[in-house]
Design a protein around this nucleic acid. Structure first.
Length: 556
RNA sequence: UGACCGAUGGUGUAAUGGUAACACUGCAGAUUUUGGUUCUGCCUUUCAAGGUUCGAAUCCUUGUCGGUCAACCA
């Protein structure tokens, strides 16, 4: 049986359209973010869907900024969105802005008025809401619904000319106040906003609503497949109504279920709250589900693209286990991250039979998983080493393959050692571990004939570099914070960030810089943070290694 | 007490009227100078009831459950 998955429903639709020669077989999609925040992993999926589908069918994709609400939008966001899309590895055919089309959209509105299909309403927001009815109750017509075309034309022109204050008038499409679809009950299509727009400046004081800008922009660009998330499904009849009445290019809208991830929140509003209320350090705090945060945390674009592809596209609600994202990043990093040694919780180990003051240079393979094993690096070794505190137990259980009185382990890339003694302070904390080493057991030229179960990592005390390490855990304590009782912020995980100020890493890391990817052997994948300076390196833990030992211990 | 959409293992996604499969997770084992990786095996699935059919996850009916919709947001 084939391991290939069948096509998803969007691929089926497009394949059918191409086969039937619709639009001459042309495929043009678009990714249409509003520049009012940073992109998150849900957008990454949407980007992969839109750009990916176009690539599959020899089509193209536009990046279009849906900038019809000047009060919320900023150039800063435009720049970050472009950077994120590029980082993910996609190239847009064109960058457009809904604001590029304000003149055309204005003309569309005039066309509608001339056809008797739009009117200026002087009602307040409250009055309009009151007459709108409810999902189970029909709405009632506005007293301004039957204004003459001439009057509407005059009023709309004056709206445009700035003769009215914000909220004083709106332009509404004249459709059906009794429609079971609330969006068809004479939707507002233009509102007055005397606001500065990040691109059009003060040229306009009226701005089209989403429903009168998005589909129109699609149509102007001759988008063939306008793909969005499920919550826009109820807008579709309106989308089509405008295209029909305006007799413009028939773009078609298709919807898929948005991505949800466990242990995080995905709405821009909630993410903004986390930033504003300082629960995180910013949009790119490595605990955030934003693309910029994942980048900073050491995720690769390949792993995110792979993730987006593998979760699939469908129309049912879903919540993906964040463990699956972690699997995707580990899978990629396993092949490309160089292995290095870092001790995060150090305790001193002294090799009693190793000459004082002696240093020897050992060779370490960089990545056993890479094609050429990633080359090698030099590792200084000496009498005093830092090892992980958890790699020693005074009373070791039988399956503990590490150090303890009388136990032997191999020091990675170095020698086999045997624990002879240890020292404790008054509180019972281990302060020093004394071992002897076996000179014939040197890695690569071992003639000792001794086999040990465990291998541990280490850093030579005189050669160690002191660094800061930031360990991240899930931002929330519950799988789906949004579906819990009360405020989602009550479920924030207080221990989502653990900072280690005095970790030791091997000297080869001296010139590490943001963008480099490492595996700290036995500890996880790490990358230099953008806060790093030449004197002070800061590492982010991208993701832990799979840890079956920790799991085993939890069981007991 | 509306309209629309959806329902396949723990989580996702396939199977397009013809043997319910793939990945992740979980469990067991092998390999391993990372308790990593790799490899092997195992567990677990069609919301319910009717109907159509030689045959239904798929089509029809009804029900149940879930989602979306009442911003001058997108």
């Amino acid at each position: 049986m084939s391991t290939e998955k069948g096509p998803n429903f969007l691929e089926e639709i497009i394949e059918e359209d191409v086969k039937n020669g619709k639009h001459g077989g042309r495929v043009l999609t678009r990714f249409p973010p509003e520049p009012n925040g940073y992109l998150h992993i849900g957008h990454a999926k949407s980007i992969c869907v839109n750009f990916g589908l176009a690539q599959q069918f020899n089509g193209k994709t536009n990046l279009r900024f849906d900038d019809t609400n000047p009060e919320k939008e900023e150039t800063e966001y435009v720049d970050s969105i472009k950077a994120d899309v590029k980082w993910l590895g996609f190239e847009w055919a064109n960058v457009f802005y809904a604001s590029d089309y304000f003149d055309q959209i204005y003309d569309f509105a005039v066309t509608l008025i001339n056809k008797g299909l739009a009117y200026v309403d002087d009602s307040t927001a409250e009055q309009i809401a009151a007459l709108k009815g409810t999902p189970t109750e029909a709405g009632k017509p506005s007293p301004f619904r039957d204004r003459s075309i001439a009057e509407n034309l005059d009023l709309f022109t004056r709206m445009k000319n700035g003769e009215f204050k914000d909220g004083e008038k709106v332009l509404r499409a004249k459709i059906d106040m009794a429609s079971p679809n609330m969006h068809m009950r004479d939707p507002i299509i233009y509102r007055i906003k005397h606001a500065h727009h990040h691109r059009t400046g003060d040229k306009w004081c009226i701005y089209p609503m989403y429903d009168f800008a998005h589909g129109q922009s699609d149509s102007i660009e001759k988008i063939t497949h306008s793909i969005c998330t499920l919550e826009f499904e109820v807008h579709k009849p309106l989308y089509e109504w405008f295209i029909e009445q305006l007799e413009i290019f028939p773009s078609k809208q298709y919807e898929f279920a948005r991505l949800n991830l466990t242990y995080t929140v995905m709405s821009k509003r909630k993410l903004l709250q986390l930033v504003n209320e300082k629960h995180v350090s910013g949009w790119d705090d490595p605990r955030m589900p934003t693309i910029s945060a994942y980048r900073r945390r050491g995720f690769t674009p390949e792993s995110i693209r792979n993730f987006a592809t593998r979760v699939g596209v469908a129309r049912r609600e879903n919540i993906i286990d964040v463990g699956f994202l972690e699997f995707c990043v580990r899978e990629d990093l396993n092949k490309r991250a160089n292995r290095v040694m870092a001790v995060l919780d150090p305790v001193k180990l002294i090799i009693t039979n190793y000459p004082e003051g002696q240093t020897e240079i050992l060779t370490g393979e960089n990545n056993p998983e890479a094609e050429d094993h990633g080359g090698t690096r030099e590792l200084p070794f000496s009498r005093e080493l830092w090892i992980e505190r958890e790699d020693f137990m005074e009373n070791a259980p039988k399956k503990f393959f590490r150090l303890g009185p009388g136990l032997s382990v191999r020091l990675k890339h170095a020698y086999i050692i045997k624990c002879e003694d240890f020292k404790k302070d008054a509180d019972g904390n281990i302060t020093e571990i004394h071992c002897s080493y076996i000179p014939e057991s040197k890695s690569g030229s071992d003639t000792s004939g001794i086999n040990v179960k465990g291998t541990i990592h280490w850093v030579s005390v005189p050669h160690a570099i002191t660094v800061e390490v930031r360990l991240y855990d899930r931002l929330f304590k519950v799988e789906d914070p949004s579906s819990e009782e009360g405020d989602f912020k009550e479920y924030i995980n207080a221990d989502s960030l653990q900072v280690i100020n005095n970790a030791f890493v091997e000297p080869s890391l001296k010139s590490a810089k943001p963008g480099d990817l490492f595996q700290f052997i036995r500890k996880g994948y790490f990358c230099p943070d953008t806060d790093s300076t030449t004197d002070h390196l800061v590492f982010n833990r991208t993701v832990t290694l799979k840890d079956t030992w920790a799991k085993e211990q939890k069981k007991d």
